[in-house]
Amino acid sequence: MVPVSDPGFADAVAALSAAGAAGTNLCLPFLGALPVSHASISTLGAPFGSETVCASDDHAAGLDELQIDFGAGPCWDALRTRAPFVDADLDRASETGWPWLRNALRERGVRAVYAFPLTIGPLDVGALDLYALEPSALNTAQIERASALADAATAHVVRQVVRKLPVAGHDDDDDPGTFSRREVHQATGMIIAQMRLNADDAFALLRAHAFAVGRPVRDVAADVVSRRIVFTPNDGAGGD
């Protein structure tokens, strides 16, 4: 257990609930409470869909997007196993199944990554990712502290996500938010019509194209929506 007298922890919990109440950035409190440089939180998979909820800065948002686009990585592993995932040294060989992702994180200056599952009862919510710029393993007390903070953040994450759901009878098209992946869904719809594919295959094609050209899926989706990229059955994706 985290000692109740731990002032850094108490401050972080207070900051989390303040951020939760105000609807502001839930990721910042983690930076003060743990020896990490960047933090991000995303919902992953069913039922909430995969989307960045918050990031401590643009760099963290990019790191999070990398894992969401890739569909595998520390955050996915933490949620699947419902246990903290620690990769203390990205320079050292590892048994993980994503050498490409580790390499991409390294290229962005990350040397260690820690992921914590966000769950409520049987419900899978997402994960918290913490990134360090030097190789370092978290000690047991730090892992417990991070886990407890992740638990404290979970309810706020769910509340923020549910608050953004369309209200029955009010189907107005309101502000999608900074990290919204709705253009990904819109682009998927366009590819459904362009390529006569079902939704799963259309999304797989969009993602494959993004990887092939080395760009985030959201960026490619924006180009599909603005018709700078058009998929055609004979030639695949083409630009104007």
Partner: peptide
């Protein structure tokens, strides 16, 4: 969102 994409095209 997907349906919007279909109709947009």
């Amino acid at each position: 969102e997907q349906a919007k994409g279909v109709v947009a095209h």
